[in-house]
């Protein structure tokens, strides 16, 4: 082996190439377009334009509102479900978990189209409640991503800790509030990340349910289809930074928690 000059690092070359071609290069291109004008000259106009145009800022706020609302609704529905599934002694638990996960196996467009029909049947005209419908659509779509991580964390939760809390005088409510919730934090955080980020940018739901382009993802799309690559890139870049900050923040919390949990197991 040695004489052929093979080293283990060589195995990394394909991945490095992949990263350069499909991650680093596109990012550089976006960066280039975001900070140049149509003639290829450096400018900050796109950045200033983003934060001064009521259209882009409005869309950003609206997207954030949708993402926050969706995440909250998913959390409120998802936690009790995950808790019941993980902590109760009911039989056929896995079947029920599967039922919640199964919609993920069905084609996304098909699901949303079906939902659209159902909502139209209920509301008559979807245009009356665009915000509500978007939340319903996104919740329907992302709920499994919220349930699964919380379910796995709650499943691993050591039952003797709950007994210990009760033993020390905690009522069932305080056991839940002081032990179960803090210990399921890693699951909650990953669930929130998994739902918040895609609901910030996903525009298919909105597009299909309300024919609206009033969300970040579709805004970028509309700029690019109008051949305004510079402004489109800047929106993408701003979004990237927001997501990066959010991820870094939650990640730090997440690893801290699982780190403690992991050390407990060892």
């Amino acid at each position: 082996m040695k004489e052929k000059g093979f080293r283990r690092d060589c195995l990394g070359i394909p991945y490095a190439l992949f990263l350069v071609c499909f991650v680093a290069a596109p990012l550089l291109v976006i960066l280039y377009y975001a900070f140049t004008n149509g003639q290829g000259q450096f400018t900050l106009q796109n950045l200033i334009g983003f934060f001064t145009s009521p259209n882009t800022v409005g869309t950003l706020v609206y997207s954030l509102a949708i993402a926050v609302a969706t995440t909250l609704v998913c959390l409120l529905i998802g936690y009790p479900v995950a808790y019941l599934l993980a902590r109760s002694k009911m039989k056929h638990k896995t079947v029920i978990v599967l039922l919640f996960v199964m919609p993920m196996w069905i084609n996304f467009t098909l699901r949303i189209t079906a939902l659209k029909e159902v909502l139209t049947l209920l509301e008559g005209n979807l245009a009356f409640h665009p915000f509500l419908n978007t939340i319903i659509g996104m919740t329907y779509d992302f709920l499994p991503f919220m349930i699964l991580p919380m379910y796995t964390t709650l499943l691993k939760l050591d039952g003797t800790l709950l007994e210990a809390a009760a033993d020390l005088g905690a009522t069932p409510f305080s056991v839940f509030w002081k032990v179960t919730i803090p210990l399921s934090m890693p699951g909650i955080v990953s669930g929130v990340v998994m739902v918040f980020l895609p609901s910030m940018t996903n525009y298919v739901v909105l597009d299909m349910l309300c024919n609206s382009t009033y969300i970040m993802g579709s805004l970028i799309g509309s700029y690019f289809s109008a051949y305004d690559w510079n402004n489109g890139s800047m929106i993408a870049l701003v979004l990237l930074v927001i997501i990066l900050v959010f991820t870094l923040y939650t990640n730090r919390y997440d690893t801290q928690e699982t780190g403690r949990g992991g050390a407990l197991l060892s």
Partner: peptide, 28 residues
């Protein structure tokens, strides 16, 4: 229920709360 009994337990695998420090565990 256990929380109404003037009895406390030391568990086999200790069952200390991993999300709390030593002080908060004892003060629980």
């Amino acid at each position: 229920p256990p929380n109404k009994r003037p009895i406390n337990t030391v568990f086999q695998r200790y069952a200390l709360f991993p999300h709390l420090n030593v002080y908060d565990n004892i003060a629980f």
